[in-house]
Amino acid sequence: MDDRSETQLQPDLEPNLVEAILREAGPSPTQDALLPILHAVQGQVGHISKETIRSIADAMNLSRAEVQGVVSFYDDFREAPSAKHVVQLCMAEACQAVGCRALAAHAKSQLGVDFGEATPDGAVEIKAVYCFGNCATGPTIRIGNRVHGRVSPERFDALVAPLRSGGRSA
């Protein structure tokens, strides 16, 4: 399964990938192609660097400020690489009603990080998100592209432990 959380690349591969994505978008893509292009870069490269923003702006005949503005607006797009695995915790009301605040506190203390931070070994980062539409069976988390429901602190530990020992996220 596609795993968007594990997308660290050798730095020299990045320009090639971006170039290929832009080539696929056609000769002079219009601005409505920007989000799909950014999704492709985020998915394949793992982040959207200053250099990539410049390449996209040039290819689309937009200002760098316009592209930068879009990248910074949306939570899905990140300007710096993430940890190897991103664990998203739903912090919205339906999950609050079944203990996501306690789960988040557990996750933070177990991993020793706050939301938006990575563990010192660069293995796991936790992120607060709002709603996976899994509201009858929360608390819900997402690891890579996999959604997990009714996640107790014990289940959280069981799901996250393999990520820290170098395994792939399922």
Partner: peptide, 11 residues
């Protein structure tokens, strides 16, 4: 873009 927490009918 079914973003409201507690909703999943669209999905």
């Amino acid at each position: 873009d079914e973003g409201d927490s507690g909703t999943f009918a669209d999905r």
